[in-house]
Amino acid sequence: MPGLLAVLALVMGTVKVDRPAARPPAPRPSAVARITVPRPVARPPVVPRSKWLDTSSAREQPPPRYDDRVVAVFIHHTDSPNGYDCADTPRIIRDVYAGQTGAKDWDDIGYNFLVDRCGTIYEGRAGGADRPVTGAHTQGFNHRTAGIAAIGTFTAGSAVPKAMTDAIARLVAWKLGLAGVDPRGTVRLVSSNSLSRYSAGTAAVLATVSGHDAAFMTSCPGAALSDRIPEIRDLAARYQGR
Protein backbone atom coordinates (compact mmCIF):
# COMPACT_ATOMS: atom_id res chain seq x y z
CA MET A 1 0.00 0.00 0.00
CA PRO A 2 2.71 2.57 0.79
CA GLY A 3 4.23 1.91 -2.63
CA LEU A 4 0.86 2.37 -4.35
CA LEU A 5 0.22 5.62 -2.51
CA ALA A 6 3.62 6.89 -3.54
CA VAL A 7 2.88 6.11 -7.20
CA LEU A 8 -0.49 7.89 -7.00
CA ALA A 9 1.13 10.93 -5.41
CA LEU A 10 3.75 11.01 -8.15
CA VAL A 11 1.07 10.86 -10.91
CA MET A 12 -0.99 13.61 -9.27
CA GLY A 13 2.08 15.76 -8.91
CA THR A 14 2.93 15.26 -12.58
CA VAL A 15 -0.55 16.29 -13.69
CA LYS A 16 -0.32 19.42 -11.58
CA VAL A 17 3.03 20.41 -13.07
CA ASP A 18 1.83 19.90 -16.68
CA ARG A 19 -1.32 22.01 -16.27
CA PRO A 20 -0.88 25.28 -18.26
CA ALA A 21 -0.99 28.02 -15.64
CA ALA A 22 -1.41 30.87 -18.16
CA ARG A 23 -4.69 29.62 -19.65
CA PRO A 24 -7.65 31.90 -18.83
CA PRO A 25 -10.16 30.32 -16.45
CA ALA A 26 -13.02 28.53 -18.16
CA PRO A 27 -16.38 30.27 -17.88
CA ARG A 28 -19.22 28.63 -15.99
CA PRO A 29 -20.90 26.01 -18.19
CA SER A 30 -24.24 27.78 -17.83
CA ALA A 31 -22.72 30.97 -19.27
CA VAL A 32 -21.00 29.48 -22.32
CA ALA A 33 -22.70 29.64 -25.72
CA ARG A 34 -23.84 26.11 -26.45
CA ILE A 35 -23.26 25.23 -30.09
CA THR A 36 -25.57 22.27 -30.41
CA VAL A 37 -28.12 21.56 -33.11
CA PRO A 38 -29.49 24.32 -35.32
CA ARG A 39 -32.43 26.22 -33.86
CA PRO A 40 -34.35 27.19 -37.00
CA VAL A 41 -35.74 30.70 -37.12
CA ALA A 42 -37.45 32.14 -40.17
CA ARG A 43 -35.03 34.26 -42.16
CA PRO A 44 -36.09 37.91 -42.04
CA PRO A 45 -36.33 39.76 -45.36
CA VAL A 46 -32.85 40.87 -46.47
CA VAL A 47 -32.38 43.35 -49.31
CA PRO A 48 -29.54 42.03 -51.52
CA ARG A 49 -26.44 44.13 -52.07
CA SER A 50 -27.32 44.42 -55.75
CA LYS A 51 -30.05 46.87 -54.68
CA TRP A 52 -27.58 49.40 -53.27
CA LEU A 53 -24.27 48.74 -55.00
CA ASP A 54 -23.60 50.64 -58.21
CA THR A 55 -21.78 47.94 -60.18
CA SER A 56 -20.20 50.52 -62.47
CA SER A 57 -18.28 51.99 -59.51
CA ALA A 58 -17.86 48.80 -57.47
CA ARG A 59 -14.31 47.95 -56.54
CA GLU A 60 -12.75 44.77 -57.89
CA GLN A 61 -12.41 42.42 -54.95
CA PRO A 62 -11.04 38.97 -54.14
CA PRO A 63 -13.37 36.01 -53.57
CA PRO A 64 -15.25 36.03 -50.25
CA ARG A 65 -13.78 34.16 -47.28
CA TYR A 66 -15.88 31.93 -45.07
CA ASP A 67 -15.83 30.47 -41.57
CA ASP A 68 -17.50 27.24 -40.50
CA ARG A 69 -20.32 29.00 -38.64
CA VAL A 70 -21.37 32.21 -36.91
CA VAL A 71 -21.23 31.95 -33.11
CA ALA A 72 -21.37 35.63 -32.13
CA VAL A 73 -22.64 38.98 -33.38
CA PHE A 74 -21.13 42.44 -32.98
CA ILE A 75 -23.41 45.47 -33.10
CA HIS A 76 -22.13 48.71 -34.71
CA HIS A 77 -23.41 52.07 -35.81
CA THR A 78 -22.36 53.79 -39.02
CA ASP A 79 -21.76 57.17 -37.31
CA SER A 80 -23.80 58.91 -40.00
CA PRO A 81 -26.78 61.32 -39.70
CA ASN A 82 -30.01 60.00 -38.17
CA GLY A 83 -32.68 62.09 -39.84
CA TYR A 84 -32.68 60.35 -43.19
CA ASP A 85 -35.56 59.17 -45.35
CA CYS A 86 -35.45 55.37 -45.55
CA ALA A 87 -35.77 55.65 -49.31
CA ASP A 88 -32.26 57.10 -49.19
CA THR A 89 -30.78 54.08 -47.39
CA PRO A 90 -29.18 52.56 -50.54
CA ARG A 91 -27.33 55.85 -51.14
CA ILE A 92 -26.18 55.96 -47.52
CA ILE A 93 -24.81 52.42 -47.75
CA ARG A 94 -23.01 53.34 -50.97
CA ASP A 95 -21.39 56.22 -49.10
CA VAL A 96 -20.26 53.83 -46.32
CA TYR A 97 -18.94 51.45 -48.96
CA ALA A 98 -17.09 54.28 -50.73
CA GLY A 99 -15.48 55.40 -47.48
CA GLN A 100 -14.32 51.93 -46.49
CA THR A 101 -13.07 50.90 -49.93
CA GLY A 102 -11.65 54.35 -50.67
CA ALA A 103 -9.85 56.09 -47.81
CA LYS A 104 -9.53 52.88 -45.79
CA ASP A 105 -8.55 50.83 -48.87
CA TRP A 106 -10.65 47.81 -47.84
CA ASP A 107 -11.66 45.31 -50.51
CA ASP A 108 -15.38 45.58 -49.62
CA ILE A 109 -17.75 47.02 -47.06
CA GLY A 110 -16.85 45.55 -43.68
CA TYR A 111 -20.30 44.88 -42.18
CA ASN A 112 -22.18 41.71 -43.02
CA PHE A 113 -25.52 43.49 -42.62
CA LEU A 114 -26.87 47.02 -42.20
CA VAL A 115 -30.24 47.97 -40.70
CA ASP A 116 -31.98 51.30 -41.24
CA ARG A 117 -34.30 53.29 -38.98
CA CYS A 118 -37.37 51.71 -40.61
CA GLY A 119 -36.18 48.20 -39.78
CA THR A 120 -35.12 47.22 -43.30
CA ILE A 121 -32.18 44.81 -43.36
CA TYR A 122 -29.59 45.10 -46.11
CA GLU A 123 -26.92 42.60 -47.12
CA GLY A 124 -23.51 44.20 -46.72
CA ARG A 125 -20.31 42.29 -47.42
CA ALA A 126 -20.35 39.99 -50.46
CA GLY A 127 -20.53 36.23 -50.14
CA GLY A 128 -24.16 35.41 -49.42
CA ALA A 129 -26.39 36.47 -46.54
CA ASP A 130 -27.10 32.82 -45.71
CA ARG A 131 -23.44 31.90 -45.39
CA PRO A 132 -20.85 32.52 -42.60
CA VAL A 133 -18.96 35.23 -44.47
CA THR A 134 -15.79 36.49 -42.79
CA GLY A 135 -16.31 40.23 -42.34
CA ALA A 136 -14.05 43.19 -41.60
CA HIS A 137 -16.02 44.84 -38.82
CA THR A 138 -14.34 44.07 -35.48
CA GLN A 139 -10.54 44.14 -35.32
CA GLY A 140 -9.26 40.79 -34.07
CA PHE A 141 -12.68 39.13 -33.97
CA ASN A 142 -13.94 38.87 -37.54
CA HIS A 143 -13.80 35.08 -37.65
CA ARG A 144 -16.97 33.15 -36.75
CA THR A 145 -18.84 36.40 -36.11
CA ALA A 146 -21.27 38.63 -37.99
CA GLY A 147 -21.19 42.42 -37.96
CA ILE A 148 -24.52 44.25 -37.95
CA ALA A 149 -24.42 48.03 -38.41
CA ALA A 150 -27.30 50.27 -37.35
CA ILE A 151 -27.44 53.15 -39.82
CA GLY A 152 -27.11 56.36 -37.82
CA THR A 153 -25.31 57.77 -34.80
CA PHE A 154 -26.45 56.51 -31.40
CA THR A 155 -24.47 58.38 -28.79
CA ALA A 156 -25.96 59.10 -25.37
CA GLY A 157 -29.38 60.70 -25.56
CA SER A 158 -30.06 59.62 -29.15
CA ALA A 159 -33.35 57.95 -29.99
CA VAL A 160 -32.99 54.37 -31.18
CA PRO A 161 -35.98 53.37 -33.34
CA LYS A 162 -37.86 50.31 -32.13
CA ALA A 163 -38.25 49.10 -35.72
CA MET A 164 -34.45 49.04 -35.95
CA THR A 165 -33.82 47.09 -32.74
CA ASP A 166 -36.62 44.62 -33.54
CA ALA A 167 -35.11 43.95 -36.97
CA ILE A 168 -31.64 43.51 -35.45
CA ALA A 169 -33.09 41.02 -32.94
CA ARG A 170 -34.75 39.00 -35.73
CA LEU A 171 -31.51 38.99 -37.70
CA VAL A 172 -29.52 37.91 -34.63
CA ALA A 173 -32.00 35.14 -33.85
CA TRP A 174 -31.75 33.79 -37.38
CA LYS A 175 -27.96 33.96 -37.78
CA LEU A 176 -27.16 32.50 -34.35
CA GLY A 177 -29.99 30.00 -34.66
CA LEU A 178 -28.20 28.38 -37.62
CA ALA A 179 -25.53 27.22 -35.14
CA GLY A 180 -27.88 26.66 -32.19
CA VAL A 181 -26.34 29.59 -30.26
CA ASP A 182 -28.27 31.28 -27.45
CA PRO A 183 -28.23 35.08 -27.93
CA ARG A 184 -28.10 35.50 -24.14
CA GLY A 185 -24.99 33.37 -23.66
CA THR A 186 -21.26 33.90 -23.95
CA VAL A 187 -18.64 32.47 -26.26
CA ARG A 188 -14.88 32.02 -26.20
CA LEU A 189 -13.21 33.74 -29.15
CA VAL A 190 -9.48 34.03 -29.87
CA SER A 191 -8.14 37.42 -30.93
CA SER A 192 -6.30 37.43 -34.24
CA ASN A 193 -4.93 40.96 -33.93
CA SER A 194 -3.21 42.82 -31.11
CA LEU A 195 -4.91 46.07 -32.16
CA SER A 196 -8.07 44.74 -30.50
CA ARG A 197 -8.67 44.91 -26.75
CA TYR A 198 -6.90 41.55 -26.53
CA SER A 199 -3.43 40.68 -27.79
CA ALA A 200 -3.24 38.22 -30.67
CA GLY A 201 -3.76 34.65 -29.51
CA THR A 202 -5.64 35.63 -26.35
CA ALA A 203 -8.89 33.79 -25.66
CA ALA A 204 -11.63 36.20 -24.62
CA VAL A 205 -15.03 35.28 -23.21
CA LEU A 206 -17.55 37.68 -24.74
CA ALA A 207 -21.31 37.88 -24.91
CA THR A 208 -22.67 36.20 -28.02
CA VAL A 209 -24.30 39.54 -28.82
CA SER A 210 -21.85 42.35 -28.05
CA GLY A 211 -21.24 45.94 -28.96
CA HIS A 212 -18.20 46.76 -31.04
CA ASP A 213 -16.60 48.34 -27.97
CA ALA A 214 -16.49 44.98 -26.17
CA ALA A 215 -13.66 43.89 -28.46
CA PHE A 216 -12.11 47.10 -29.75
CA MET A 217 -11.17 50.48 -28.25
CA THR A 218 -14.06 52.51 -29.61
CA SER A 219 -17.26 54.25 -28.56
CA CYS A 220 -19.18 52.34 -31.25
CA PRO A 221 -22.10 51.48 -31.25
CA GLY A 222 -22.79 54.50 -29.07
CA ALA A 223 -24.15 54.62 -25.53
CA ALA A 224 -27.82 54.77 -26.58
CA LEU A 225 -27.61 51.66 -28.75
CA SER A 226 -25.40 49.87 -26.22
CA ASP A 227 -28.17 50.35 -23.66
CA ARG A 228 -30.55 48.49 -25.97
CA ILE A 229 -28.33 45.44 -26.48
CA PRO A 230 -29.72 43.51 -23.47
CA GLU A 231 -33.21 44.01 -24.91
CA ILE A 232 -31.99 42.80 -28.32
CA ARG A 233 -30.52 39.66 -26.72
CA ASP A 234 -33.73 38.84 -24.88
CA LEU A 235 -35.94 39.47 -27.90
CA ALA A 236 -33.68 37.37 -30.15
CA ALA A 237 -33.86 34.53 -27.61
CA ARG A 238 -37.67 34.73 -27.66
CA TYR A 239 -37.65 34.59 -31.46
CA GLN A 240 -35.63 31.37 -31.06
CA GLY A 241 -38.30 30.02 -28.72
CA ARG A 242 -36.07 30.08 -25.65
Rank of each mutant, 00 (worst) to 15 (best):
M1L: 13
M1T: 14
G3R: 15
L5S: 10
A6E: 15
A6T: 14
L8I: 14
A9M: 11
A9V: 10
G13I: 04
T14C: 13
V15E: 10
A21Q: 04
A22E: 01
R23A: 15
A26Q: 13
R28V: 10
P29V: 09
S30P: 10
P38Q: 06
R39Y: 02
P40Q: 09
V41M: 00
A42F: 01
A42R: 14
A42Y: 05
R43G: 00
P44S: 00
P44C: 03
P45E: 05
P45I: 01
P45T: 04
P48N: 11
P48W: 03
S50W: 08
L53I: 12
S57H: 01
R59P: 09
E60F: 01
Q61W: 09
P63D: 07
P63Y: 08
P63R: 15
Y66L: 02
D68V: 11
V71C: 08
V71Y: 05
V73S: 02
V73G: 01
F74T: 09
S80I: 13
N82E: 03
G83F: 01
C86I: 08
D88Q: 14
T89I: 07
D95Q: 15
D95F: 12
V96S: 08
K104L: 15
D105G: 01
W106V: 09
D108Q: 06
N112K: 02
N112M: 03
R117N: 13
I121V: 15
A126N: 02
G127C: 06
G128Y: 02
G128S: 11
V133G: 10
G135M: 12
A136Q: 14
T138F: 09
H143R: 15
H143A: 01
T145G: 12
T145Q: 01
A149K: 08
A149N: 00
A150R: 09
G152M: 06
T155M: 02
A159S: 14
A163C: 07
A163I: 11
A163E: 13
A169G: 02
R170S: 13
V172Q: 07
A173T: 02
A173E: 04
K175A: 11
K175M: 10
D182V: 07
R184E: 12
L189A: 01
V190N: 00
S194I: 05
S194F: 03
S196V: 04
R197T: 00
G201Q: 11
T202S: 13
L206A: 08
T218E: 04
S219L: 12
P221M: 07
G222D: 11
A224D: 12
D227T: 11
I229T: 11
E231P: 06
D234E: 14
L235K: 15
R238G: 07
G241I: 04
